[in-house]
Simulated assay, not measured.
Amino acid sequence: MMRIYLRLRKFTRKMDKVYELRNCEIKVRLDEGLIRVYSDKGLWCYLDNNIRLRTLELAKFIKIDYQKEVNKTLMISESSLMVEIWAHVYSDYFGLLIKRHLKIKWVQNLLQKGIERAEIIDCGEKKFDSNRWVWDFLSHFEQIISLFLPKNISNKNLKN
Score class of each variant (00 low, 15 high):
14 K>R: 13
14 K>Y: 14
14 K>D: 15
14 K>S: 15
15 M>S: 15
15 M>D: 15
15 M>F: 15
16 D>L: 06
17 K>R: 15
17 K>V: 13
17 K>D: 06
18 V>E: 11
19 Y>K: 08
20 E>K: 09
20 E>N: 14
21 L>G: 03
21 L>V: 12
21 L>N: 03
22 R>P: 00
23 N>C: 10
24 C>I: 05
25 E>F: 14
26 I>T: 04
26 I>C: 01
27 K>R: 15
28 V>W: 06
28 V>D: 02
29 R>C: 07
30 L>W: 13
31 D>L: 13
31 D>N: 14
32 E>I: 14
32 E>N: 15
32 E>T: 15
33 G>L: 09
34 L>A: 04
35 I>T: 14
35 I>Y: 07
36 R>P: 02
38 Y>N: 08
42 G>E: 07
43 L>P: 10
44 W>S: 14
44 W>H: 09
46 Y>A: 02
46 Y>C: 01
46 Y>P: 01
48 D>Y: 02
49 N>W: 10
49 N>G: 05
50 N>T: 10
50 N>Y: 14
51 I>L: 13
51 I>S: 03
52 R>I: 12
53 L>I: 11
54 R>D: 01
57 E>W: 01
57 E>Q: 01
58 L>S: 09
58 L>F: 12
58 L>Q: 10
58 L>I: 13
60 K>P: 01
61 F>S: 02
62 I>S: 05
64 I>F: 05
65 D>P: 07
66 Y>H: 07
66 Y>R: 05
66 Y>T: 07
66 Y>G: 04
67 Q>P: 00
67 Q>G: 00
68 K>Y: 04
69 E>W: 00
69 E>F: 05
70 V>W: 00
71 N>E: 07
71 N>D: 06
72 K>M: 03
73 T>P: 01
75 M>D: 14
75 M>N: 14
76 I>K: 13
77 S>H: 05
78 E>F: 09
79 S>H: 14
81 L>R: 04
81 L>K: 10
81 L>W: 06
83 V>P: 13
84 E>W: 08
85 I>N: 06
87 A>Q: 12
87 A>W: 10
87 A>T: 12
88 H>T: 04
88 H>I: 02
88 H>Y: 04
88 H>Q: 01
89 V>S: 08
89 V>H: 11
89 V>M: 11
89 V>P: 08
90 Y>F: 15
91 S>I: 01
93 Y>M: 09
93 Y>T: 09
94 F>A: 04
94 F>C: 02
95 G>D: 04
97 L>T: 11
97 L>I: 08
98 I>T: 13
101 H>Y: 11
101 H>I: 05
101 H>W: 05
101 H>V: 11
104 I>D: 00
104 I>R: 00
105 K>N: 12
106 W>P: 05
106 W>V: 03
107 V>A: 06
107 V>I: 14
108 Q>I: 01
110 L>N: 11
111 L>G: 07
111 L>C: 06
113 K>E: 00
113 K>W: 00
114 G>D: 04
117 R>I: 11
117 R>T: 13
118 A>L: 01
120 I>L: 01
121 I>S: 02
121 I>C: 02
122 D>F: 09
122 D>R: 12
122 D>K: 14
